[in-house]
Nucleic acid binder design. Structure first.
Length: 289
DNA sequence: CACTTGACCTGTCCGC
DNA sequence: TGCGGACAGGTCAAGT
């Protein structure tokens, strides 16, 4: 599900909702969703306080007072939903939440805080996970060793983006954008939206892009990621924020899941095709190979 | 080595 | 209505 804007929205929500709270109990029903030893959980998670919630690429980092961290990847369908202490466990739910009483069928991990509030990790497809690791070891994970630069960082220039993309010069630009070792945080939605913004066909080989196209793409990626964060991310399927609410970016999407609708720029009918093994949305007039 | 494809899972939708 | 297959926002391992 979540790409950079969705994970950033969840991060901001959790930062506001759970920092300072102390963990009282942990429950899980699917070991792959929570592959940690009982000893580590008892020693470094139970009784720990939440110090900070940060993000790198599509990964959330929850720093604990025990000098351990929870490393969380939501993958396709993961959700982190907070419920306050006034919500009776398993009973009612806030009227403004779009998901029902928790835990539910998709709940994989439950973190109970000492004040009676709860954080639920729901994940329909079970691809996501929460790992408990010493904070100093987090950046040694293979993923963090190879992950590319943050596209909204101030030092992410178009030249840097070009250099990173040219590591994959013999593949198409969509596959290169989805490669997290090239640029962090872009997934299927924002790859399609950014390529439409820069008028680049997703099947274009990276080696064939001109400097002016790299510049347009750089500008497009940043503008679209910023807009989506401002709108609370995209909710076309299972995504919700930490309060169980949807983001509104899909209302602003130009091509993603808009096949059959007119291109907002030229009016040509948007089509859906397949590039890099993923469903891909383009305007066949604005975006040519 | 660079690149592509299958696997991990559950749920939904679409055609027969 | 039932059933099979394709597909869904991600990332690895294994294949070519």
């Amino acid at each position: 599900m979540p790409e950079l804007p969705e994970v950033e929205t969840v991060r901001a929500g959790l930062s506001r909702l759970i920092v300072g709270k102390q963990i009282a109990a942990v429950d899980f029903d699917w070991p792959k969703s929570f592959p940690n030893t009982k000893a580590d959980v008892d020693t470094f998670l139970i009784s720990a306080k939440i110090m900070a919630v940060t993000r790198r690429a599509k990964v959330l980092l929850v720093e604990l007072s025990s000098e351990y961290s929870l490393v969380i990847h939501l993958k396709m369908t993961g959700q982190l939903v907070f419920r306050g202490k006034n919500i009776e466990f398993g009973a009612g739910h806030p009227s403004d939440s779009l998901i029902g009483p928790l835990p539910d069928k998709s709940t994989r991990v439950t973190l109970q805080f000492t004040d009676g509030s709860t954080l639920f990790f729901n994940d329909q497809r079970k691809f996501g996970w929460i790992r408990l690791l010493p904070t100093v070891e987090v950046l040694n994970l293979a993923f963090f060793q190879k992950v590319g630069p943050e596209p909204l960082a101030s030092d992410f220039t178009w030249q840097l983006m070009k250099d990173r993309l040219l590591r994959r010069k013999n593949t198409n630009i969509k596959a290169a954008l989805l490669d997290q070792s090239v640029v962090a945080g872009v997934g299927n939605i924002y790859a399609d939206e950014s390529l439409w913004g820069a008028r680049i066909h997703p099947a274009t080989m990276v080696r064939d892009l001109s400097d002016s196209k790299f510049k347009e793409l750089h500008k497009s990626i940043q503008a679209i990621l910023r807009l989506s964060i401002e709108k609370g991310g995209s909710s076309s399927h299972t995504y919700v924020n930490a309060e169980g609410k949807k983001g509104s970016y899909m209302n602003f999407a130009s091509v993603f899941r808009r096949e059959g609708e007119p291109c907002p720029r030229c009016g040509m009918t948007i089509i859906k095709t397949r590039v890099a093994g993923r469903g891909t949305h383009i305007c066949p007039s604005c975006q040519r190979v």
